[in-house]
Design a protein around this nucleic acid. Structure first.
Lengths: 145, 145
DNA sequence: TTGCTCCTCACGTCACGTGAGGTGGC
DNA sequence: TTGCTCCTCACGTCACGTGAGGTGGC
């Protein structure tokens, strides 16, 4: 398994090194292993994790606090086939899953609203471009006279 | 023309009063008229202006500095049929319009990328919900035995 | 050694949030 | 008067940016 340094991760994810350390400090990104001298050594999994974080933050506009919640929901789904399955009784598991389903529904609603709004912005930009291009055509026509 | 107070505008646009005053301070929102005692009196146009600002900020993720540029582009298009038409010569106007066209193209590209990414997030959320629902169904099946 | 990256403080900045303290109309 | 909103400072906060100052491998 290739051990990646913080600079590699920063480039891959389009973040600064400061931001990556900061996310670790806040507990949003899992802490990587360290070399003897303290250098952080990342894996591919860290990159995948970070890309999801960035996507959720930029696209959904979540604060970093909200992101922590968002991520822990994803994790509890991933882990549901492990010890979680044994330690929790059925009714408790069902209740938790129903809660997760509800939150996911909320988030999907939020995402759909975002898509709606971004389509509006796109339409406006296209209308502006159309006007700009028409204005250019008119100038060129005048020129020909 | 109805004169709106800052609280009305805040509710309509989903912003705080502080934010509205701050945008005015930065020159992003045109300053409204004032009553004798200094109270800000807004019009419907201010609300439209603010809604566009909020949409562009939240959807495009622009900084407030970038927003100022973004807005001035919109305005120079609106104004192109007024004194602008007389004071500037044809080649200069053509050059400006071509520049506006280029920037709009960039922004459209940015918006399309955003749409791409938000669709990815949506797909991931739907996949998670599917897994959560399957897990619930399985629990209910076990219960029946 | 020089050049490069790594680390941990720690102060600065941007976009507001949040009182403080005072005024004015119903 | 009481309750409400308005105003202007001005300090606080969140999410980093940006050096400072020191260490370590090629």
């Amino acid at each position: 398994m290739a051990r990646l340094k913080i600079e590699d991760v920063a480039k891959e994810c389009g973040l600064t090194k400061r931001t990556i350390r900061y996310y670790e400090e806040l507990g949003i990104l899992s802490p990587p292993q360290r070399s003897e001298k303290g250098t952080r050594l990342y894996t591919k999994e860290h990159i995948d994790e970070l890309k999801k974080i960035v996507n959720a933050r930029e696209v959904l506009g979540f604060s970093l606090q909200e992101l922590q919640q968002f991520i822990s929901i994803g994790n509890s789904l991933e882990n549901h086939s492990q010890d979680y399955k044994n330690t929790t009784d059925r009714t408790e598991r069902r209740r938790k899953l129903a809660e997760i389903d509800r939150i996911l529904g909320e988030q999907l609603h939020l995402v759909e609203q975002k898509i709606q709004r971004i389509q509006e912005v796109k339409a406006e930009l296209e209308a502006k471009r159309k006007r700009a291009r028409e204005a250019i055509v008119n100038i060129d026509k005048d020129q020909q006279k």
